[in-house]
Computed example of a mutant assay.
Amino acid sequence: MIVGLTGGIASGKSTAARLFAERGAAVVDADRLAREAVEPGTPALAAIVRRFGAGVLRPDGRLDRAALGRLVFRDAAARRDLEAIVHPEVRRRMQALIERFRAAGAPVIVLEVPLLFETGLDRAVDLTVVVYVDEAEQLRRLMARDGLDREEAEARLRAQLPMEEKRARADVVLVNRDGVEALARQIDALWTYAVRPNRTGQRKGNADAP
């Protein structure tokens, strides 16, 4: 079974992915693959420099993600150009990992993908799971986590589907407002009733997790 795990920025996707891994799932982290895709010497990094200039590089030749973010989160066309460079490479790496996990007999594979719906990857999984917090809490967490001012944080939120739309499109919603233990209980319920090993990939319909 393949589970597509997503949510808004700063909603707690990585925490949820870790909890799934603790229960035996193989996790594919799209953010990690995106970082690997733009390491020095990669075709993707070269393409980024051609499009955005050498100002998006740090002195050591690595991508300056903060500098690039300041460019693309305020410019939808620039963001689309970046996605056209990075997303195909991420998909290639993701498919390779899925095949490796399947060959190893992994019963459940979780794809942790921030832009699951935006990129159409929701159509390639058996179950979509959204980690949900309301937008006010999401904004507060993002500002605190990344040291952003309100304007910068709001620009990053606008670059993704609104949280309420993701919630409406999900098969299962995990509400992450009461801490890790509460989130873990919801994942335990989901694991038991929907994605535990040897269950079929049948969708369960849109509902909040118990």
Rank of each mutant, 00 (worst) to 15 (best):
G61D: 09
R62E: 12
L63H: 06
A66K: 14
L68M: 11
R70H: 15
R74L: 13
D75C: 05
D75L: 02
A76E: 12
A77D: 08
A77R: 09
A77F: 01
R79V: 04
R80L: 14
A84T: 12
P88R: 07
E89S: 11
V90A: 01
R92N: 10
R93F: 10
R93Q: 14
M94R: 15
L97D: 10
E99W: 15
A104L: 14
I109Q: 01
L111W: 11
V113Y: 04
F117T: 00
F117P: 00
F117I: 01
T119L: 10
T119H: 06
R123I: 07
D126W: 08
D126F: 11
V133M: 02
V133H: 02
V133W: 00
D134N: 14
E135P: 09
R140A: 04
R141L: 03
A144E: 11
A144V: 04
R145F: 05
R145T: 08
R145K: 09
E151D: 15
E151N: 11
E152D: 07
E152Q: 07
E152V: 01
A153I: 00
A153M: 01
A155G: 11
L157Y: 04
L157A: 06
P162D: 05
P162G: 02
M163K: 15
E164W: 08
R167G: 12
R167L: 10
R167A: 15
